[in-house]
Design a protein around this nucleic acid. Structure first.
Lengths: 339, 339
DNA sequence: TGCGCGGATGTGACCGTGCACATGGAGTCA
DNA sequence: TGACTCCATGTGCACGGTCACATCCGCGCA
């Protein structure tokens, strides 16, 4: 009775042990699902835990095991739909696996900012890292910092490392491009993402590959920054020339900006210009006109990242994760060219 | 020389102490900026730390101080622009203050899901909580769980607690509504957010207050779910009646859906119907037509949340934070009614 | 000259958990 | 019946910091 006083402190493993009439080590075994614990003992301990509202102290655990059970996410532009969806699913997958997620944002793209962010994650003692950021630069920073944790990115094809991968961006870009070609377009521009994002690079490559495969002459892609704002200004420039009938944009936001600019120039989508986006953000179906785009399964992407990382870290069997195939969603922003 | 061997373990405070020729406690004092440390000693310790690439062990610190230096964020729909912007700024503000952020998402809106999420945060030993979720339900769950941490929300006006606040949603909604009335509209609908989001409730109240203040008769608001999809279907229903000339939507996504539905019905925005949104997401300027909306400073919101929380927790002077005033951004989606 | 004081530093305990090892008892088998 | 094995549990220490307290030293002052 008087034993069970609330001392204003959270109960610990020994409090539980005392009340259950066992040693603290037995309680620890119950916590860690040790096999050789008698069922009756286990139950008694669990009951006491429940009664005391006992929670294991994460810090003490991390201290003694020297494992933080924390995953790091290096993100940039994370208020955008793609990154934030991925982060969300990473977080819930990590949580299910008993891991914590710590994210760091890089604001500017210079090396210093990347180092600061990595440094922050390093301080947390992360055990794995997911990178959702301009990866080329980040890779460079990582090798300079000799970060010793396994990391992973959405890298599609840089064959030089096994820090594996997920959505087949090249295939997605080819789907989008083929769609335009099949509709009869021959003068197609590509509005790409920032060149040091590997996704952007992969989509650009997919575009060029498909154009070549179908013997359609290409023009140099325009390098954008993912924003609708950029799409708008790029579109204004393009409309001065008008030597094209279709544009494949590397994401939906830039596609939105493009359509805005095209309409401002008194032209119609898809009658005068067809537009394809990439990502299929939830708003894309309600753009005017509704946007033809390539859907990626972001949540699945996040889940696989975590699975892959935990696999690398030896927590579970590192099952080979196949590449996720994106899907073309045809809506009203694409049609045949008008000659 | 042989002393400085890399044992494959991270250096600790005693390693630093040995190399610097001081006691571990002196090293600890340097870490914590203790005043009575001789400058020369401090510098010597810092040099050794640098040489050894020493990083304090967060777990050990948390264990002994029983402070996790972790803030919790309870989020839902965090892939949306508003929530994700806020989270991002919370995270960077927290990081600056030496805090870590742990977020938990509630997927469904039932109480069990909320409890699971709070439980997860509780396990992290969070010292403060920011709530970006359907707050009415969450409040209920919190009081049931008797969570002992200070928490904060974007609550505008529930006078019953001091868990303070930031953006003046009511004022923003009044700005939007007044704009429509001033343009000559008298038959205005309001497409609201989910009723248990306090932001939604506040915007709805602002709408009603302004309508009453200007003696314009009101109709019952429509309760939505923030999505463009919902806006579209709501718009389709509304277009069957057409007893209005303007709609104030509680966020930009639903406004996008509305405009889609209005065009589908062969009508024009703003000629037949004027639309105002809320949030000013980056895409809103490129909607067709560009959307008149109410801009909120999300990053500032996140920063103030953290400042307020840390203040409550006694880390810094709890300076009274004034309410942030939103701003009306007039674009092409609003005009005078056509009779 | 002796005493007090405060600045600079050291000593040992402690936080809550997991690990290595010890212990004890029941069952097996020669 | 004694040695061995295996299961269930206990004992003590380590992890890397911080805290309370002790110590040492130089200086000012009566």
């Amino acid at each position: 009775m008087t034993d069970n006083v609330d001392r204003g402190k959270a109960p610990n493993i020994r409090d539980v042990a005392r009340l259950a009439g066992v040693s603290h080590q037995t309680v620890s075994r119950v916590l860690n699902d040790h096999p050789s614990i008698r069922e009756s003992t286990k139950q008694r301990v669990l009951d006491v835990m429940n009664e005391l509202q006992y929670r294991p102290n994460r810090a003490a655990r991390a201290l003694v095991t020297s494992r933080s059970r924390t995953l790091g996410v290096l993100a940039s532009q994370r208020s955008q739909y793609g990154p934030s969806s991925i982060i969300q699913s990473i977080e819930s997958a990590a949580q299910d696996a008993g891991y914590l997620v710590s994210t760091a944002n890089i604001t500017s793209t210079d090396e210093a900012s990347i180092i600061t962010a990595l440094d922050h994650l390093n301080t947390q003692g992360i055990e794995g890292l997911v990178i959702i950021a301009p990866q080329v630069r980040v890779f460079r920073a990582i090798s300079n910092l000799d970060l010793r944790v396994p990391f992973i990115t959405m890298n599609t094809s840089e064959g030089n490392d096994d820090h594996v991968i997920a959505v087949d961006q090249v295939a997605g870009a080819r789907l989008a491009t083929r769609h335009l070609i099949e509709r009869g377009h021959r003068n197609i521009y590509h509005l790409a993402g920032p060149q040091d994002w590997i996704e952007a690079e992969a989509r650009m490559r997919g575009f060029l590959e498909e154009m070549n495969a179908q013997d359609v002459p290409t023009t140099a892609p325009i390098l954008g920054d993912w924003s609708a704002e950029f799409g708008y200004y790029a579109g204004r420039e393009l409309m001065r020339v008008r030597d094209f009938t279709a544009i494949f944009s590397s994401n939906d936001q830039m596609a939105l900006g493009l359509m805005h600019a095209i309409r401002d120039a008194g032209q119609d989508v898809p009658h005068d210009v067809s537009i394809v986006g990439f990502d299929d953000i939830p708003e894309a179906a309600h753009f005017w006109p509704p946007l033809t785009t390539v859907r990626q399964d972001f949540p699945e992407l996040g889940r696989r990242c975590v699975a892959q990382l935990l696999g690398t870290m030896g927590d579970s069997a590192a099952e080979y994760t196949h590449r996720i195939q994106p899907e073309l969603i045809v809506r009203a922003s694409t049609g045949p060219p008008s000659f």
